[in-house]
Design a protein around this nucleic acid. Sequence first.
DNA 1: CGTAGTGTTGAGTCAAGTCAATGGTTGTGG
DNA 2: CCACAACCATTGACTTGACTCAACACTACG
Lengths: 246, 246
Amino acid sequence: MLLAVHPLRRLVASLSLRVKLSGDDRAAILDLPHTHSTVAQGGLIVREGHIPDRCGVLVSGFAIRQKISGEGRRQILAVHLPGDAVDFQNLYLAESDHSVQMLMDGEVAFVARSAFRQLMRQNETIERAVMVQMLVETASLREWILNIGQRRAPERIAHLLCELGFRLEAIGLAEEYNYELPMTQEELGDATGITTVHVNRTLRLLEEKGMIRRRRRLVSFPDWQRMRELADFSTRYLHLDIHSEQ
Amino acid sequence: MLLAVHPLRRLVASLSLRVKLSGDDRAAILDLPHTHSTVAQGGLIVREGHIPDRCGVLVSGFAIRQKISGEGRRQILAVHLPGDAVDFQNLYLAESDHSVQMLMDGEVAFVARSAFRQLMRQNETIERAVMVQMLVETASLREWILNIGQRRAPERIAHLLCELGFRLEAIGLAEEYNYELPMTQEELGDATGITTVHVNRTLRLLEEKGMIRRRRRLVSFPDWQRMRELADFSTRYLHLDIHSEQ
DNA sequence: CGTAGTGTTGAGTCAAGTCAATGGTTGTGG
DNA sequence: CCACAACCATTGACTTGACTCAACACTACG
């Protein structure tokens, strides 16, 4: 049973969320030459300072995009789910200014950057799909800034939990927005600009207020709507509503 | 003396900072059909929720990219200088998730989104130049997140002042990194996630430490290198070093 | 000369950080 | 199978950076 599931299938599904792909388009993506390997927890798929000549696609497992300050403090910029291409951000740049790291053991497919760019020039729909994906990533960064810059700890954490729930739901990896949190409390802190200790207290607070329920890393939301309101979570920035045709 | 200076000249210059453009490339950009108008301070060039069908290019004056939270708090995401195209972020999206506002009276040229995209498909160099510009904007958002998420108020403000100085210097609008700050202290606060009062105290602190000097809105840096170190300001994220050829 | 927008300063409060210790879970190797 | 180590989560006590509220000063402009 070779290749029970094609490594790039999730990428196709992910791109299809926002741009309608024809059978030919899908085939063209699946035909991209690629390698396929497992990467251990903590492994880097994109390295700051390196010249990116290939684009990683998450097949399984989660990853984070991160940047380290001069004092060695780590800021998490985004969380990537299976199906995400983690290197669109570097497709046209000479040198990566940040890195992408696996949150757990997982599989990654690698596609040559040149192959990606060639396919984009050949196929306008795929080009658009990639561009949309890139711009949605950027939109997420904007919301991330708003979150860190303007919200208090409880809302900040809540917003991150909502984003994860919503995105996992969209790709079928959550049920009723319940999911297993792929991050430690330290990582939640690095993502939201809050210390580990305060993340812990804030999670407890959210639980006491009945906004979340926890068992191990499993989070569930007794009242998803109230949670969304508390978190000030709007889905507009994820641009998921429609298949934009032009 | 009609059109003493072509409204799109600064855009050409701005794109040329990172991608080498031939004479034909430059001419093609200058030939883009466009309108040209003045926009008053506070005027919106991009509106959240609107469908962007045209792309604004700053001819003169400064603008900010911003997002408003559900509680009405404003977060500034980026500062745009003359020559910046402020709508690349929406070129492939159906609806803007944020807005761009003039910081002062200024001139803006508008190019139809379709014309831009058509030119990009026709001319691979221009396509690359636009993509690079888009990705550098995204890189700036990442650094912005690091700044707000991991640095203290003095370093945060210092970093913003460094970024402005460096970018203004790059387009010839600063002398020795000295420039007239285009923002009020309230705006500095909204950009860094700090209250107005604390911005004021922090600026005083930076001045007392000899990192900056102020006269009105004019800022200068007695020791630019020390300032950069304090701010933990690296220029890598601006990707300005080279004309990347591939 | 009055008004509106900025900038500045002081006093008091609070959200979040720091430091430090303890508990729980998982995995591993003797 | 147990003991230890490593990692993660939790809690308490104390500190502090930043916020809030409030007043006042400066400047530009009609």
